[in-house]
Measured scan of single mutants.
Amino acid sequence: AVSDRLIGRKSVVMEAISPQNSGLVKVDGETWRATSGTVLDVGEEVSVKAIEGVKLVVEKLE
């Protein structure tokens, strides 16, 4: 599936994300709604860990 190619990809937070609120990330020039178990600020680099419905699950790059 097209979405499977996103797992493991680097992306950049475009709208802040917290455990309570989804935000936005940009992956390969496309904007996606995303969630995370931690707070992520605009501009942080993250990695796509999973896809749940139409949202990406991301975490901060170490």
Results as ranks from 00 to 15, higher is better:
residue 6 L to Q: 03
residue 12 V to N: 04
residue 48 V to W: 00
residue 12 V to K: 07
residue 18 S to F: 07
residue 30 E to W: 06
residue 33 R to V: 15
residue 4 D to W: 03
residue 3 S to C: 12
residue 10 K to I: 14
residue 2 V to N: 13
residue 44 E to K: 04
residue 13 V to F: 00
residue 56 L to V: 07
residue 29 G to T: 06
residue 32 W to E: 09
residue 39 V to T: 12
residue 28 D to P: 00
residue 55 K to T: 15
residue 34 A to G: 07
residue 9 R to I: 06
residue 49 K to D: 03
residue 38 T to I: 09
residue 41 D to E: 14
residue 32 W to P: 08
residue 6 L to R: 04
residue 1 A to T: 13
residue 36 S to I: 02
residue 12 V to D: 02
residue 42 V to H: 03
residue 16 A to F: 08
residue 60 K to R: 14
residue 52 E to Q: 12
residue 6 L to K: 04
residue 37 G to E: 14
residue 32 W to F: 14
residue 50 A to D: 07
residue 38 T to D: 15
residue 29 G to P: 00
residue 15 E to P: 00
residue 13 V to W: 00
residue 31 T to A: 08
residue 49 K to F: 05
residue 20 Q to F: 10
residue 42 V to R: 06
residue 43 G to M: 04
residue 10 K to Y: 08
residue 11 S to H: 01
residue 36 S to M: 02
residue 39 V to K: 11
residue 2 V to D: 12
residue 15 E to S: 09
residue 47 S to D: 06
residue 36 S to Q: 01
residue 17 I to S: 01
residue 41 D to W: 10
residue 54 V to D: 15
residue 42 V to L: 06
residue 35 T to K: 07
residue 26 K to T: 11
residue 34 A to W: 00
residue 27 V to S: 04
residue 59 E to Q: 08
residue 47 S to W: 15
residue 46 V to C: 15
residue 58 V to A: 00
residue 41 D to A: 13
residue 27 V to M: 08
residue 12 V to E: 05
residue 57 V to D: 02
residue 39 V to L: 10
residue 62 E to D: 12
residue 36 S to A: 12
residue 8 G to V: 03
residue 39 V to I: 12
residue 45 E to Q: 10
residue 33 R to P: 15
residue 1 A to Y: 11
residue 46 V to R: 04
residue 51 I to D: 03
residue 48 V to A: 00
residue 29 G to I: 00
residue 11 S to G: 15
residue 3 S to G: 11
residue 29 G to L: 05
residue 16 A to W: 10
residue 3 S to R: 12
residue 32 W to K: 09
residue 30 E to M: 08
residue 25 V to L: 02
residue 11 S to W: 00
residue 32 W to N: 08
residue 21 N to G: 10
residue 22 S to K: 04
residue 45 E to T: 13
residue 62 E to I: 12
residue 12 V to Q: 06
residue 31 T to W: 13
residue 37 G to S: 15
residue 26 K to N: 11
residue 37 G to M: 13
residue 45 E to S: 09
residue 4 D to R: 12
residue 15 E to N: 05
residue 22 S to W: 08
residue 21 N to V: 14
residue 18 S to M: 06
residue 5 R to H: 11
residue 25 V to C: 06
residue 41 D to M: 13
residue 22 S to G: 09
residue 50 A to L: 06
residue 25 V to E: 02
residue 45 E to R: 09
residue 48 V to Q: 01
residue 14 M to T: 11
residue 24 L to E: 05
residue 30 E to L: 07
residue 43 G to N: 05
residue 27 V to Q: 02
residue 16 A to G: 08
residue 55 K to F: 15
residue 26 K to C: 15
residue 42 V to I: 10
residue 45 E to D: 06
residue 59 E to L: 00
residue 15 E to C: 10
residue 60 K to L: 08
residue 23 G to S: 01
residue 42 V to M: 06
residue 22 S to F: 07
residue 33 R to M: 15
residue 26 K to D: 10
residue 10 K to R: 13
residue 34 A to D: 08
residue 25 V to S: 02
residue 51 I to E: 02
residue 49 K to M: 12
residue 8 G to Y: 00
residue 51 I to W: 06
residue 25 V to F: 00
residue 6 L to N: 03
residue 51 I to L: 07
residue 57 V to T: 05
residue 20 Q to P: 15
residue 20 Q to M: 12
residue 23 G to A: 01
residue 27 V to R: 00
residue 17 I to E: 02
residue 37 G to P: 09
residue 23 G to I: 01
residue 33 R to I: 15
residue 39 V to Y: 15
residue 33 R to F: 14
residue 34 A to M: 00
residue 10 K to G: 05
residue 3 S to N: 12
residue 1 A to N: 13
residue 24 L to F: 10
residue 59 E to H: 06
residue 47 S to I: 15
residue 41 D to G: 12
residue 2 V to Y: 10
residue 60 K to D: 04
residue 31 T to N: 11
residue 38 T to N: 10
residue 47 S to L: 15
residue 40 L to E: 03
residue 62 E to S: 13
residue 19 P to C: 08
residue 37 G to D: 15
residue 49 K to E: 06
residue 50 A to F: 07
residue 19 P to H: 05
residue 36 S to R: 00
residue 36 S to D: 04
residue 42 V to K: 07
residue 20 Q to E: 13
residue 19 P to N: 05
residue 17 I to Y: 02
residue 15 E to F: 03
residue 50 A to G: 11
residue 43 G to K: 02
residue 11 S to R: 00
residue 30 E to A: 07
residue 21 N to D: 08
residue 51 I to R: 07
residue 40 L to I: 12
residue 43 G to H: 04
residue 27 V to N: 03
residue 2 V to I: 13
residue 24 L to M: 10
residue 4 D to E: 13
residue 37 G to C: 14
residue 20 Q to V: 10
residue 46 V to E: 01
